[in-house]
Amino acid sequence: MYFVRLVLPFFSHPQKNRSMSKTHVLIVNLGSPDDTSVPAVRRYLAEFLSDKRVVDLPRWQWWPILHGIILRTRPAKTAASYQQIWTATGSPLVVTTRKQAQLLGQRFVNDGVSVHYAMRYGNPSIGSVLNDIITDDCDHLLVFPLYPQYSRTTVETVRDKVTLELAKRSFHFSVDHIDSYYNNEGYIQAMADHIRNFQAQYEQPDKLIFSYHGIPKRYAENGDVYPQHCHETTRLLVEKLGLSPSQYLTTFQSRFGREEWLQPYTDETLKALAQKGDKIVHVLSPAFSADCLETLEELEVENRGYFEKNGGKIYRYIPALNDDERHIDVLESIIRQRLSTRNGNA
């Protein structure tokens, strides 16, 4: 696991008793539109796809594509996808992240630690939540992006946004960041138990597919360690589950545009498995701490279609850990470890 301390302006309060110090934890996930309307989805996609960490093309090259083509054509299709997964209480990702924050807050209620949640894109925004934290009694902020595997396109852009928003404000606390937990023992155990319980309820598959969100291959070639983290997560899970090489595959999903992304691709793999005779597959994504569009629609619906249309018989998506108690245990442990390290008690 990687921890990075971000050195930001810190102004002490000599009159404050350190025993009364207050820590705030901010968990962050990717985000979601405010609703399933086309305008809301367009606003969300505009913010997301304007991030230079997500699409690093020169702005003169990317802006005409984004504003002239993508934001004119893609929002309607994406809105229809969101409509398939939206719940009575809103976006599944936002609802689950809110629940995770509430459950974690209960774990720290006697520790002088408050837990908040924000979305990197959309609402609640990082800026609005930082406003709440700044107005409260705060000595230290721990930012925890809920991406198990580090990538510049996810974890690093959270740091960018927190730094940018804090630079606009006057604040008097130190800031730390958790970078990843792809190899955390508790996380691996919780995922392995989750898989075992799911398969005990259903059946053993011909193949277990570990599908991770993709990034352009060029990003990895330029030093993003994300694929290494993904493969290490798979290795540890396979070791814990006792799987042979013929029983599993690691794939990458959600590619966008014409550029080559990390391979093998999940959709193409599922088509090929069905065509060669595999009848039962189970698919999960260890890259997601909460179910969202990429899991509930892309993996559960779209990729099921690819497998079944090519001759596959049974396709099952294994849900994310979401607000499962074992998942909250893992997140609590990671937070406590970091705070203990900061306080010199580890």
Rank of each mutant, 00 (worst) to 15 (best):
V54C: 09
V54L: 06
V54P: 07
V54A: 11
V54G: 10
V54D: 04
V54F: 11
V54Q: 08
V55Y: 07
V55I: 15
V55C: 00
V55M: 08
V55T: 09
V55P: 13
V55W: 05
V55L: 11
V55Q: 04
V55K: 13
V55R: 05
D56C: 08
D56R: 09
D56L: 10
D56M: 07
D56S: 06
D56I: 14
D56A: 00
L57A: 11
L57P: 00
L57G: 07
P58R: 05
P58C: 09
P58S: 11
R59T: 07
R59M: 06
R59H: 10
R59C: 06
W60A: 14
W60S: 09
W60I: 11
W60N: 12
Q61G: 13
Q61L: 15
Q61V: 15
Q61D: 14
Q61K: 14
Q61N: 15
Q61Y: 15
W62I: 04
W62A: 03
W62P: 00
W62L: 01
W62H: 02
W62G: 02
W63A: 14
W63L: 13
W63R: 10
P64H: 04
P64I: 02
P64S: 01
I65P: 05
I65Y: 09
I65G: 07
I65L: 09
I65W: 12
I65S: 12
I65R: 15
L66D: 05
L66R: 14
L66V: 02
L66E: 05
H67S: 07
H67L: 13
G68I: 00
G68Y: 03
G68A: 06
G68H: 05
G68C: 01
I69S: 03
I69F: 09
I69L: 03
I69K: 00
I70H: 06
I70L: 13
I70T: 11
I70C: 10
L71K: 12
L71D: 07
L71F: 06
L71P: 10
R72Y: 07
R72P: 04
R72M: 08
R72K: 15
R72Q: 13
T73G: 08
T73R: 12
T73Y: 10
T73V: 15
R74G: 11
R74D: 03
R74C: 06
R74W: 10
R74N: 10
R74M: 15
R74V: 14
P75M: 05
P75R: 01
A76Q: 00
A76N: 06
A76F: 10
T78V: 13
T78R: 04
T78S: 03
T78Q: 01
A79H: 03
A79N: 12
A79W: 05
A80D: 02
A80Y: 07
A80E: 15
A80C: 14
A80R: 01
A80L: 01
S81K: 06
S81N: 12
S81T: 05
S81A: 14
Y82A: 02
Y82P: 00
Y82D: 02
Y82I: 00
Y82M: 06
Q83N: 09
Q83W: 11
Q83M: 14
Q83H: 11
Q83F: 10
Q84D: 08
Q84N: 07
Q84P: 12
Q84H: 09
Q84Y: 13
Q84V: 07
I85E: 02
I85H: 09
I85L: 01
